[in-house]
Design a protein around this nucleic acid. Structure first.
Length: 510
DNA sequence: ACGGGAGTTGTTGTA
DNA sequence: GTACAACAACTCCCG
């Protein structure tokens, strides 16, 4: 009797899992598969922490599957070879999976799997993932379709009635040569941990979401903490959206159950907007599958002519640029695997405008740092923060300004940069300005214990920004930018300007 | 969801 | 009450 394969990719859950439901309707036996593909260990944008986190979640998935009568086969093998050997052993009838919108490598891998399926007369049924709409050529209908997708009722896991192909092998994690860096922040893996995180967030921290997420200090507390779960699919986007909507409805109808309903509703609306952004960015990659390899505006990219400078690159990566706030961010990221969105933009802006480093190298390094690396969001952001799309205004951040805004007392800097732990607030954002006696008093000798800035922040930013404007002002760049806008431009209409209380405007009304 | 300068409007203190 | 400086807060614009 043939088997149907349920191939788990970035969807490590049993609740709200359409391929699982559809496969359970089949009369064939069912084979549940999760692959760690060896090629991934070599990819420039993939880190061992990603594989480790996926495996942690896959092991939780195995337990959830067992509870409904399924056995998960975890294999360290190339996809085609794994399918081929299962095909030889059992004869595969159909493959059920979610659509994946990943990096160029996974896109190519899926093409090969499709070819293998055609060759072997195996049907591969792929189901939509979160808010991504496959097959669109522009953004005209995207928002509508995404919103209606989010309204579909959540699916409960099926009963598998002992039709699951047993798994005699126990997966040995140590056999695959995984050597991830040890993160200082531990996340509980799995579907129920994700649901608990969501419930805790919506019950407590979400109130401060809108005001909490700009600073790296507060964002750890007031962010949702859901991104690592969403990335591996331990929770579905639809469930997050619907649970958020329920909470909004609850507070609207019974405002007395919370202490400040207005604040709650503002923050929840802002959170919901971020969830939509998430889908929006992944949709970009869906429509431009090589966003991780090729700039959206190739002409601007070549005009920019950024070049690798090893020393700058290393100092940026290791958080030793001499800009305290940036260095603190880089060290937090390396240590915990996470930093808030705004600081990600600042980090990328520093690499692009101050240090003039090529976006692909900077982007790959950051991808490896993020426990929640999501190719669509990441490479869209890299494009934006390196000024290579041509459709976004150039945003070059000032590290010292951000530092003073987000960390006025410098506690965050002192926490992540022990060399600066005794530096007084007056100098914490610009330690190179410390007189030598102060340096000695606080045991922080500039250029010995902590470096002076790698380049002058103000002039390097100005120069980077000027060069970027020059690169996008040529005729060819502009033509290309128009094409990018047609394809990817958000269809959200610009907000109408508020009418001024200006007399001249008043007069025009009559 | 940029930074910095210029210009504008609003607020406070002082004589 | 008035005149005005000093300064904060906000808006617009450009790179």
């Amino acid at each position: 009797m043939p088997v149907d394969v349920i191939w788990f990719k970035k969807d490590l859950r049993v609740r709200d899992h359409q391929p699982l439901i559809e496969a359970a309707k089949s009369c064939n036996n069912l084979l549940f598969l999760f692959l760690v593909e060896p090629e991934r260990l070599e990819l420039e944008d993939t880190d061992h922490i990603h594989i480790e986190w996926e495996l942690d979640n896959a092991e939780e998935l195995a337990k959830s599957l067992a509870a409904i009568g399924g056995h998960l086969h975890i294999k360290f093998e190339n996809a085609i070879r794994a399918l081929q050997s299962f095909h030889e052993e059992f004869e595969i009838g159909r493959i059920f999976s979610h659509q994946e919108t990943g990096n160029s490598w996974s896109y190519q891998r899926d093409l090969q799997v499709k070819e293998w399926c055609n060759l072997n007369k195996v049907e591969w049924l792929e189901f939509p993932t979160n808010g991504v709409i496959r097959g669109l050529t522009d953004r005209d209908l995207w928002k509508k379709k995404r919103d209606s997708r989010m309204r579909i009722e959540l699916l409960e896991p099926p009963n598998l009635e002992s039709r699951s192909v047993p798994n005699p092998d126990i997966f040995d994690r140590t056999s695959i040569g995984l050597n991830p860096r040890k993160l200082s922040f531990n996340r509980e893996p799995g579907e129920s941990a994700a649901a608990t995180r969501l419930a805790d967030f919506l019950g407590h921290e979400a109130k401060n979401f809108q005001w909490g997420i700009s600073s790296p200090v507060n964002a750890v507390k007031f962010g949702s903490g859901l991104s690592p779960y969403l990335t591996v699919g331990a929770i579905s986007m639809r469930r997050v959206v619907q649970t958020t909507n329920d909470r909004i409805h609850e507070i609207r109808t019974k405002p007395d159950i919370v202490s400040d309903a207005k604040m709650w509703l503002k923050s929840l609306a802002s959170f919901r907007k971020r969830l939509a952004w998430r889908c929006h960015f992944i949709q970009k990659l869906e429509m431009e599958s090589d966003l991780d390899l090729v700039a959206q505006n190739k002409i601007i990219d070549s005009n920019l002519n950024r070049v690798m400078d090893e020393e700058r690159f290393i100092r940026w990566k290791t958080g030793t640029t001499g800009w305290p706030f940036l260095d603190a961010c880089m060290r937090q990221l390396a240590s915990t695997g996470w930093i808030n969105f705004r600081m990600r933009a600042m980090i990328m802006s520093a690499a692009s405008y101050n240090l003039w480093l090529p976006w692909r190298d900077a982007g790959c390094h950051l991808a490896k740092q993020f426990i929640d690396y999501e190719p669509g969001i990441h490479w869209s952001q890299v494009g934006m923060q390196s000024g290579t799309t041509g459709i976004n205004t150039i945003r070059a951040y000032s590290m010292t300004k951000q530092g003073k805004d987000q960390d006025p007392e410098g506690d965050y800097i002192r926490k992540w940069i022990p060399e600066l732990s005794m530096v007084p607030t007056k100098y914490i954002h610009e330690p190179w300005k410390m007189p030598i006696e102060v340096q000695e008093n606080v045991s922080c000798l500039i250029d010995t214990q902590y470096p002076s800035p790698i380049v002058d922040e103000v002039t390097s930013r100005k120069e980077g920004v000027n060069r970027s404007y020059a690169a996008r002002s040529t005729k060819e760049s502009r033509t290309q930018s128009k094409l990018v806008l047609q394809k990817h431009g958000s269809r959200t209409r610009p907000r109408k300007r508020k009418a001024k209380k200006d007399k001249s405007v008043q007069q025009k009304l009559f």
